[in-house]
Computed example of a mutant assay.
Amino acid sequence: MCLLACFLVVQYFSTVIVSKDVNILYVRKDKGIRVLELWNISNVYCGKFDNEHAYRNDYIDYVALDCIEALTVRIFQNDNKQLTLTYRSINSKNLESILSRKPDSAISPKLHDKRRVPLSTDQYRVNKGNYEFMWTNEEGVKIYAAMYYNSESSSTPKFYYSERDNGDTYDNPGDAEKPSGMRSVHKVRISITVKDEYRCNEDDFDHSNHMNKCPDFKPPTVTSTKTTYTEEIGSNVTLKCQHAANNDPVTKVEWLFQNIIGNSYGVQIVINTNVAKYGGSTVASPSLIIYNIMPDNIGEYKCQAFTDYASKPGSGPPIVVGLQGGIYSN
């Protein structure tokens, strides 16, 4: 009898599912990387967890939704003081969608482990001005947490949370960097709690694309040594363009053209360089060659360079092309 009972007890506990946490992403402050952009790239495993500027685990691209029990966002300082936001009932891997709803719990050790109860009437906003994430009260005058990014600043992102039960006063509803009274912290870390099942096992798949460092999403710098050309009809002209990658390599170059005459007046188009009329416009030779220039080729040109990860291309200055003795001539 005892043997049977003991066997059943052992059998019961051996089949209990134990959840585990998998670190998915973190971003340090002042490193020029957006949390949401890094999350939203796909099939990229990059960085080294807790030892680089940023880290992303491509496990999030493959794990089944029903494997995820919870998603946890930690906004924390090096002394491990932190605000921990936990979201359950995960039905989407879209981080913007998750952050736009009420977290199931919010805990801060500074508050003696008391729960700051999130309210359904609070505002949970993403991509508002320079804020990737904001948690405020219903009226928008008290703020509890924020992720700030300004593409014009070299010292973002910034991460903040309030140490007060009732939040800090949000006295500047614009794009001010730091709401008064907020605690500035070092990084954001995101993890998911997954079921301990074979199909949910992180170790049972190959990482799709491993990079030693995560991309920084800054567009390449594009310059032109000359911005005005006045040419004869029938001549060839080379519009100069140079690009310099800030971190991620340039993978594509294209030219925009805005005509000033004819049926396409004022319409900006992407030049199709796969025709005999043009040459260049490649990563290796970004300058654009226009053969046998005609009146319908006069107007404004612009060189653009793309990377795989930057949220927008790098753009050069407008280049004006005119005809001698005609429109846009000197």
Rank of each mutant, 00 (worst) to 15 (best):
F7N: 11
V22H: 08
V27D: 07
G32L: 03
G32C: 10
G32R: 11
R34C: 12
L38K: 03
N40T: 06
N40V: 04
G47R: 09
D50G: 03
N51Q: 14
E52A: 12
H53R: 14
A54Q: 06
C67E: 09
A70K: 04
F76S: 11
Y87D: 12
S89Q: 14
S92Y: 03
E96N: 14
K102Y: 05
I107S: 04
S108H: 08
V117N: 13
P118D: 10
T121M: 07
D122H: 00
V126W: 00
N127Q: 12
Y131H: 00
T136P: 01
T136E: 12
E138P: 00
E138V: 01
E139V: 02
E139H: 03
E139P: 01
Y144A: 01
A145C: 07
S162H: 10
N166F: 06
N172V: 00
P173C: 01
G174M: 00
K178S: 01
G181W: 02
M182C: 00
M182V: 00
R183H: 10
S184K: 10
S191R: 14
I192A: 05
I192H: 09
V194N: 11
V194G: 02
K195L: 15
E202M: 03
F205D: 11
H207I: 05
N212D: 12
P215L: 03
T223V: 10
T228K: 14
T228Y: 06
E232P: 01
K240Q: 15
Q242P: 02
L256N: 15
F257I: 08
I260P: 07
G266F: 08
Q268W: 10
V283Y: 02
V283G: 02
S285M: 07
P286V: 02
S287Y: 08
Y291C: 01
N292M: 07
N297Y: 02
K302I: 10
K302E: 12
Q304R: 15
D308G: 04
S311W: 08
P313L: 08
P318I: 07
I319W: 08
L323Q: 11
G326P: 09
N330K: 12
